[in-house]
Design a protein around this nucleic acid. Sequence first.
DNA 1: ACAGACTAGTTTGTGTTGCAGACCTACATG
DNA 2: CATGTAGGTCTGCAACACAAACTAGTCTGT
Lengths: 104, 104
Amino acid sequence: MAGDDLRAITEVDRVIHEPARLLIVALLSEVRSADFLFLQSETRLTKGNLSSHLSRLEQAGYLQIDKGFRGKVPQTVCSLTSEGRAAFRLYRAQMRRAVGRSAR
Amino acid sequence: MAGDDLRAITEVDRVIHEPARLLIVALLSEVRSADFLFLQSETRLTKGNLSSHLSRLEQAGYLQIDKGFRGKVPQTVCSLTSEGRAAFRLYRAQMRRAVGRSAR
DNA sequence: ACAGACTAGTTTGTGTTGCAGACCTACATG
DNA sequence: CATGTAGGTCTGCAACACAAACTAGTCTGT
């Protein structure tokens, strides 16, 4: 039944489902890595928010965060882990079922 | 830029974005109307939860809730309003940009 | 050299919300 | 009367999103 497919929606990964993080993950899914400032300008999130969303993604094992320096200036570089990419793939598959009717 | 499309994700309608309600709206989008018990069995939500999500959707103007009787038994029948359908259409368009395979 | 501004990011505080479960109302039936 | 059904409300709690305050260190002007 169609309902069974749909019911899976209630089990989507909330870490990714949150719009701000979905945006971050979607952005990162298209590149190898991105630094904090790039993400901030793309997402227009405040530093505080961006920082905590990144931490959340890291905690979930979806993101690798490398802190280094560009010259004397600290630099935070982020990239999705393979679990992160897999989780995003799954999320997309689930959501397409709910919204993607035209995609098929 | 692709980033601009994506950034719209952060503005999705949270009323619909919540998985339980997304499920309800997706179900209702495929029928003219559905009663409380049907929704409960399809969603597997508790009565309490289902009731409050329905109220939330009604408050948002997305849902019409008609309380009546089937014989002597009370019956709550729900159907999306045209605003509800429009909101869902918009939501789907926004989310497809984030998860749709042919986004670019 | 030292104050003040700037950069990069983290921590804290607050209000909202999603959810489960207990309870309530009204009617019907065994 | 006791139980069941339909459809809720209410309460308590944990999670969380967001903004604002804060920290650490660098750069600039005088």
